[in-house]
Design a protein around this nucleic acid. Structure first.
Lengths: 241, 241
DNA sequence: TTCGATTTGTCCGTATGTATT
DNA sequence: TAATACATACGGACAAATCGA
């Protein structure tokens, strides 16, 4: 799944350096020809990589001046690559915190939107996804897949492509962020969770029922409740580290 | 503010065509050499433009196959350019609706975050911004500027770069979307609003006070109230069209 | 599996535009 | 004004990957 050509590789190289802070806002990148020599690639490749950085507004190029790193608040943070790079940075802990803050704000709202906009077919799919979740109580692997499908079916029901895109990028970032920060703790989770998965199932059920009865406020509340329990779980795990 | 070089021009050309639906997902773009001839630019320029499209995940290139348009749900919608292109498309009305839905979900949450995370300096800046708003009651132009500064100062107080980036892109999209759909209605607004700006000021004050007293729930509620009044205003204007 | 055709990927020599000094 | 330094732009050549016969 990594970069498939030289320009994408270089894009990731430089992008990572910028987001991680090795290259600070205001700094000027080496000129194209120099970068070409440094990295052992042609100028074409360098220029294409810079276009990728420009698209994400990490840099801005102009004649004579060169290519300068833009201010952090100008970056397009809602880009899977930038999020991926940030979650591997030194203060990835702080970044994960910010991701979680946004999650608690957005996801209940997304579920509320689903309760409002869901078509009958959407409802049917959600119910089906929940049943699969129910049937996977024992199996960790199957639960993870079913859980993903469940949340995906709800998200789809929001019928709002902006919200769908937003939450998907958010989820992606959380997974990436956890892979680098927690990682090992999953084993603890496997041990301790066998008692708790039933609670989790009940919370999922509450969300499902609220959406199906098109109760926006309740759907919001139940989703928030579910997320807070996840946060609690993570905090418990870290405390017992 | 437009494209500053050939590749950016071409990028906007093709990007617009894709987002507006002239080029549908699954379709294959003409090969680089053909595009080069069609648009009267070099292959270098074409290739750089394609890199911009790739970064936004509008297309995917591979050897022999060519460059194909990706599915809509794979696009990175939270990109100012994509949003700009979408707000100029045929069903821009539907897109504006989706933007508004997301706004009602996100902005109150952003304000709630501000109530939680604001530093003392942030609070001071918010109060100052509100005073400027207060002092610009008569002047339409000055009100608009002060209003922007007010919301910006709140956003900054969220102390969450992801939330800040998100809301800024959202605002940007709303402005663009309205420029193309409403546009003329601003004159009506100017006539009718003189009575209503005092109401607006009071609602802004309520938001400000809730944040300053760090009452998260109240801040959320008051911001939602303010936004709903804006929605109401727009609906009134369109009804009287 | 092999082969040929097609398209992106890569390299590089050269020329032009533009803003700074 | 002129020199400089950088991005921008052009196009010919070849490599690599992939599809279809």
């Amino acid at each position: 799944m990594g970069p498939k050509n030289l320009s994408e590789q270089l894009l990731h190289d430089i992008g990572l350096e910028i987001v991680q802070g090795n290259l600070s806002p205001g700094e000027i990148l080496p000129k194209v020809e120099t970068l070409s020599e440094m990295k052992g690639v042609s100028r074409t490749v360098v220029r294409e990589a810079l276009k990728g950085l420009t698209a994400r507004r990490l840099v801005e190029s102009s004649t004579r001046v060169g290519t300068v790193v833009r201010e952090k608040n100008e970056w397009l943070w809602w880009d899977p690559d930038i999020i991926s790079w940030a979650s591997r940075s030194n203060d990835s802990r702080n970044f994960l915190l910010q991701l979680s803050e946004v999650r608690l704000a957005i996801e209940p709202a997304a579920v509320r939107l689903a309760a409002r906009n869901a078509t009958d077919e959407d409802i049917l799919l959600i119910k089906k996804s929940y049943e699969r979740l129910e049937n996977s109580l024992g199996d960790e692997e199957e639960w993870a897949r079913a859980d993903f499908e469940f949340h995906d079916s709800i998200l789809l029901a929001s019928r709002n492509v902006l919200m769908i895109s937003l939450v998907k990028t958010l989820h992606n970032g959380l997974v990436q962020s956890r892979q680098t920060t927690i990682k090992v703790l999953k084993k603890y989770q496997e041990k301790n969770n066998h008692g708790k998965t039933e609670d989790a199932l009940l919370m999922h059920k509450a969300v499902m029922e609220a959406i199906c009865s098109r109760d926006e406020a309740l759907a919001y509340e139940k989703m928030l409740h579910l997320l807070l329990s996840v946060v609690q779980l993570i905090e418990d795990l870290e405390a017992s580290k």
